[in-house]
Design a protein around this nucleic acid. Sequence first.
DNA 1: GCCGTTTTCGGCCCGACTGTTTTCAGTCG
Length: 583
Amino acid sequence: MLANMAAIMEIKGEVVFKSIAFSRAGRIVKDLAIDVKAALDDGSLARTPGIGQHTLRVIDQYARTGRSADYDELAGSLPAGLLELLEIPGLGPKTISLFWKERNIAGMGDLIKALDSGYLDGLKGIGPKKLDGIRAGIAFRQRSAGRILIGEAQPIARSLVERLRRVAGVEEAQIAGSLRRCRETIGDVDLLCSASHLSDGPAVAAAFVKFPEVQRIQGQGQTKASILTTDDLQVDLRIVPADSFGAALLYFTGSKEHNVKLRGLASARHCTLNEWGLYKAAEYDALQKKAGEAPALRSVAGRSEAEVYAALGLDFIEPELREDRGEVEAAGRGELPRLVGRSDIRGDLHTHTIASDGVATIEEMARTAVAMGYEYLAITDHSKGQTLANGLNEERLLRHVKEIRQVGRRLSGIKLLAGCEVDILADGTLDFEDAILAELDMVIASPHAALKQDALKATDRLLRAIDNRYVNIIGHPTGRMINSREGLPLDMAKIFKLAAANGTALEINASYQRLDLNEISARAAVQAGVKLAVNTDSHSTGGLQGMEFGLGVARRGWVRPQNVINCMGIARLEEFIAAKRRL
DNA sequence: GCCGTTTTCGGCCCGACTGTTTTCAGTCG
């Protein structure tokens, strides 16, 4: 609702800062780890920077009554159909407003008809190319579902970077943008490269737009180019000299909100920060600038990101934290967390084999884990309720356990844990009796079906599972699938409280379709004293490599190694499991 | 609309590219 209000203000041509303020308030509410009503009641929302008198009133009224008079009034002032027009790339608020006022365009249907009939021809400032651009934008919008999953974008981006590195004149090429920040979904791919000489820029841009995966060229200049790939992914490339690489990487990695905050800090230090570098404001303002050329001025910093942060009085901020969620302030105080990384991970605690729906054997999974440098690996095939996934019944499970232990004895260099991913049934009971679970080294309990329960039922269901002394990890707690299934509407505060109290870990499922818990819940869980487990849920040896996506979520959630049970050595992990059984 | 190491009023990040224009507005990141 707040984001809509911001959009409406944009189209109405209100002072842009008003729109920005509402948009920011919307983001703050969306990022809340606790319920909005709770944040209103305890006064924390009112104290949040960016929430002021007006936005607080709107949120408060909506939370109490389910309506907002301010929203209703604003929404009533223009046709609702105009808002979706903002989603068309190349079409912005000014043009939408023009179409509405001059040609009575009230929505997508009107716009398409008017484009077809020539009704928009002859408007001031609108020529044939602009109209073509809008047509292409609408077609793109209808073809593509919007943001794609990180695991889908990454291989495409990596192959483009490889190709870029081979282009003449390119020194260094790197992925930037939301992909570098490990967001769960990616709107477009941002790539950055440095050229040995900036004069090579146009040639690099020209080579880029001729890559075989290019479907359409959106733009091409001295220092940047933008293309649409054959699978409808937009890719933006920026080309800078090596001296500006750090500043440009910072700029192109974002987030936008993080950048805005850094530039504000630069201002306060009488400097100006842009993609070319950090400059003394007085010197920079006196300069004759030309688009597409590096400022003819020595920068204060710019070669590396670390240099720029240091010049602003900040510790280095990892890309995953750059969302303006308090990281800049923490960096200023020297209080950033040491984030969990790949080298902290000692094992994977959620994997499947051919015994249920995996494609690799116990031994194949184990050997891959050894090659990855893991100290332990848990084999956790499905329970009998997962009939489609060839779930194991009691008898098959016990045979499987025996086999896991046999393989474990035979292999050196890795400890195999005989486990199971047991279904949490709709009422919160588990798919196996305690007597069976007691035979296992470790238990994950996960919801797989009945994922449309209300908050009360769903929360009670998980609490029951957490309450079981044999359950060590709750797997993909909400059951969500990104872009396709909402998942259970859990009361996380209650879940965290019990999980922290009785030593049950919550999973960050690294499968890029799930990423469950998400980053917001992960951060709140850690604050509530809950232990996490970052697991791949892999069904093949290749799947074990997917750990990085789960780590991305954990890092975005400010998670430290000490918060993660699979960063423990085997002895401590076994004690973690044993402690709950003693309760 | 929000906010205070410049401020309770007056700012609020900054640059590249496109299209439609003869100097700039719009859009994007």
